[in-house]
């Protein structure tokens, strides 16, 4: 379907992707390769360690071994750090049942250092390269099938998020960028389960991201989407707006003319 103009959110999405890509490119340039544990420069690891000791160790332990306040980070990989810190979920603003995404506290460079440090502690998923999240040749239809099979139960078929137990939630995916989605799938942040590369291959992950990108366009052939929350908002709408209009007109019909 052709679109003559884009949603304003699309601009942000583009900006977000561009920023993310720049950051990743920067990281790639500064480290020489994708930040695999072994290939990372030792200065970056040292910087990361320093940042970690200052900002993270109070909860995760001085050797990232974990404590009662935070899980062990040994073996979680660079992708987990990039996701958690890059999306602003970490560091936590305060004790909460679930970390909230907010503007990141660290710079791209600092995040890369932190990721390099955590990656050096034990093998774990690496930050996906640009090529890994390039969805230009992805299969939209299969992506949709996989999304409805593996993702929609929590994130809703339109990717608008949903409630989990005891105040937890599956976030809205409308502003999620491809790298973030990829990282979430391979690292299983918070209560999200891990979708390994064997059960959902990297190609299939691309397909899923491609489908989410399609959802992010928020194309509404039939008009305003009321937030895509489903029938509840439709019901509220028919009572407040629909019946509201008709009752106002009824009052006009019943009122004496002058």
């Amino acid at each position: 379907m052709a679109i003559s103009r884009r949603h304003p959110a699309a601009l942000f999405a583009v900006l977000f992707v561009a920023l993310g890509t720049t950051g990743a490119a920067y990281a790639a340039v500064s480290t020489g390769t994708a930040p695999q544990a072994a290939a990372t420069s030792s200065t970056q690891v040292d910087e990361g360690k320093q940042l970690f000791l200052e900002g993270c160790s109070s909860c995760h332990g001085v050797a990232a071994q974990g404590s009662s306040d935070g899980p062990s980070l040994i073996g979680v990989g660079a992708a987990a750090v990039d996701f958690q810190v890059g999306s602003g979920r970490m560091p936590l603003a305060g004790p909460a049942i679930q970390a909230v995404d907010k503007p990141p506290v660290y710079t791209e460079e600092e995040i890369a250092s932190l990721a390099a440090y955590v990656a050096s502690l034990g093998a774990g998923p690496a930050i996906p390269s640009d090529e890994m999240v390039d969805t230009s040749n992805a299969d939209l239809v299969l992506g949709g099938e996989l999304f409805r099979t593996n993702c929609s139960q929590c994130h809703n078929v339109a990717g608008r998020g949903g409630a989990l137990s005891n105040g937890r939630w599956a976030p809205n995916l409308m502003a999620a960028d491809p790298k973030e989605i990829y990282e979430a799938m391979i690292t299983g942040p918070q209560n999200m389960p891990v979708f390994s590369d064997k059960t959902i291959t990297p190609e299939e992950k691309k397909d899923i991201i491609r489908y989410i990108e399609e959802l992010q366009k928020s194309e509404n052939p039939g008009g305003a989407d009321l937030g895509r929350f489903g029938p509840v908002t439709e019901g509220v709408f028919i009572f407040i707006v629909g019946l509201g209009i008709l009752i106002v007109i009824s009052v006009w019909i019943g009122a004496k003319a002058r």
């Binding site: 379907m1 928020s218 509404n220 052939p221 008009g223």
Partner: peptide, 18 residues
């Protein structure tokens, strides 16, 4: 019927339908 046009608060909407 296959063209979506951008309508400010709603996003891309089917031009024919609208």
């Amino acid at each position: 019927n296959t063209t979506l046009i951008y309508v400010p608060p709603f996003g891309p909407v089917n031009a024919n339908h609208l």
